[in-house]
């Protein structure tokens, strides 16, 4: 499927003639890693319309994990996704989440609409009053994360706040690449180890390792932030909602779609 997507990008590049092709190849082979990352991001974001119905149906059946949706539900979900020109990853994410949370198909269709026509269009998730408030939140978040040397290149809002008009919480997922991730794991692991030794509570380290094996490091395991952890973000801005901030390991069960990526 990856090569299929790559081929489609190749065809798109060739639409602008030989110059377009050369430019595309240059961007892929660029020595600057960020170009390759951007090219791969572009590949990932190819629309659903580039897949055959059989390919999609197979994937939907595979991701209908608990068989929560019947074939007529899946058909309606597929048609809605096509109508919304949704990305394949997002469609799969909706079906997976719908299964786990047992969201009725009628409600799931509404949530798909909310995500594409409201959240992506206006550029901010539910739970915020306006774009300005969201941008203010993002600025504080990035500044707090930078203070503990955490990269802010790939931060995503996931979960109910990109799907439902009345979300229970705001889920923030931070994705780190290669060396940055290794460094952060080493740093947090040492902190948890020390905490376990000092307190005599082995659960600090043990549960950290269990969370990590599942694919996340939550903000509680982060190095201390001088501004009292994330209190400002977690409580002062959202009195009625939980704000969950975690480092998420790519391709783990916590790496879910749909999401809204924060601007760099």
């Amino acid at each position: 499927m990856f090569f299929c997507k790559l081929l489609q990008l190749f065809e798109k590049a060739c639409e602008s003639g030989f110059d377009g092709f050369v430019k595309w190849i240059r961007s892929l082979l660029s020595k600057e890693k960020k170009h390759l990352d951007e090219a791969l991001d572009e590949i990932e974001q190819i629309s659903l319309k580039n897949y055959s119905k059989t390919e999609i149906s197979t994937l939907l059946l595979q991701n209908n994990i608990n068989k929560f949706y019947n074939s007529s539900d899946l058909d309606a979900i597929y048609k809605k996704a096509l109508q919304l020109d949704m990305r394949l990853d997002d469609l799969i994410g909706f079906v997976k989440t719908g299964n786990i949370k047992e969201i009725k198909s009628v409600e799931l269709l509404k949530q798909m609409d909310n995500y594409i026509n409201i959240v992506l269009q206006r550029g901010y998730p539910f739970g915020f009053r306006n774009l300005k408030e969201f941008e203010q939140f993002c600025d504080i978040l990035k500044s707090e994360l930078s203070s503990i040397a955490l990269s802010t290149n790939d931060i995503r809002i996931q979960g109910s706040s990109v799907r439902s008009k009345n979300p229970n919480d705001i889920d923030i997922a931070i994705f780190l690449k290669d060396k940055d991730l290794d460094i952060f794991i080493n740093k947090t692991r040492e902190l948890r180890k020390e905490k376990s030794i000092i307190s005599g509570n082995p659960k600090f380290l043990k549960n950290y390792e269990r969370r990590l094996s599942l694919g996340k490091i939550n903000s509680f395991d982060f190095p201390k932030i001088k501004n009292d952890y994330f209190d400002l973000l977690k409580n002062n801005m959202f009195k009625d909602k939980k704000v969950q901030i975690s480092v998420i390991i790519e391709n783990s069960s916590f790496d879910v779609s749909p999401y809204l990526k924060l601007k760099k």
Binding site: K203, R210, R211, N218, F220, D231, K234, N235, K242
Partner: peptide, 16 residues
């Protein structure tokens, strides 16, 4: 495992 802040607000919960 449930984490609460100084005001007793639930910050996160994990099921194992």
């Amino acid at each position: 495992e449930r984490h609460y802040d100084k005001k007793g607000n639930l910050l996160s919960e994990d099921f194992f």
